Simulated assay, not measured.
Amino acid sequence: MRFISKLSSCVIALVSTAFCLPVGAAPIIAGSYYEDTVTAGCGNTTGCTTWWSQLPASQLLNVKRVNCRLGGMSQTPITYKFFVAPAPGVQSIGRNFFFRVGEVASSGGSIYGAINDELNVLVGAGRAPAIEIDFAVASNVSINCTLIGELQNSQ
């Protein structure tokens, strides 16, 4: 009886935890086509960074387009940086590409923006592409970004 009680407690804890953890969708890969979407939110910061999935160790990614929706900002972003990291959660390996944020509009006291840029950046095998939204003055921001590119075998 004691075993069943402990087992049911573990199952309840496991199920509760699974629904509390953030879950990201896996990248879409069809032949050489690659598409990955990330969502993040940052509070009161001058730079909000999020990473796409780490690439397979055997493939390079030629990034063709980055498309983002930025929302809930109290300040207008000044730039965004697309960069290459050795892994998600790690800073740039020094390959940084800076762009201006496109359309910006305000509604209900918040500022919203869009990014829709063509890139031609090769991301190395096993690396993680990332994006950072930069502000001159601290701001909140929610980010939803899609990266589109072509996979290549690394030889």
Rank of each mutant, 00 (worst) to 15 (best):
G43Y: 13
T46Q: 03
W51L: 05
L60R: 14
K64G: 09
T45S: 01
T79M: 06
C48G: 03
W51D: 01
F82E: 02
I93G: 06
G94R: 10
V66Y: 00
L61M: 07
I93V: 15
V101E: 00
T76F: 06
S74Y: 13
T49V: 10
R127P: 05
C42Y: 11
P129C: 03
P56D: 13
A40G: 06
Y112M: 11
V66L: 03
G72T: 13
R95M: 13
A40K: 08
A105D: 12
N44F: 08
V90C: 04
G43H: 10
I115Q: 00
C48F: 03
L61P: 01
P77F: 05
G47K: 04
G94D: 07
A87C: 05
I111C: 02
I93P: 04
T39W: 08
T79R: 06
W51I: 09
A125L: 09
G47T: 09
G71Y: 07
N116S: 11
S106E: 08
F99R: 14
I115E: 01
A85N: 04
P77G: 05
A57G: 12
T46C: 02
S53Q: 15
G47D: 05
C42I: 11
L119P: 05
E118M: 13
G109R: 08
A130F: 04
Y80K: 03
F98D: 09
G47A: 11
P77H: 05
F99Q: 11
V66R: 00
M73P: 00
S106R: 10
V38G: 02
G109W: 06
C48R: 00
G94P: 05
Q54P: 06
L119A: 06
V38L: 02
P88Q: 05
G102E: 09
F99E: 07
D117Y: 06
T76D: 06
N120M: 13
L60N: 14
S58R: 12
G102T: 10
P56G: 12
P56V: 14
F83D: 01
G94W: 09
F98T: 15
Q54V: 15
V63R: 00
G72D: 07
I78K: 08
Q59L: 10
V101N: 00
V38R: 01
R127L: 14
T50C: 07
R127S: 15
V101R: 01
I93C: 06
L61D: 00
Q91S: 15
S58I: 13
A128E: 05
Q75N: 07
L119W: 05
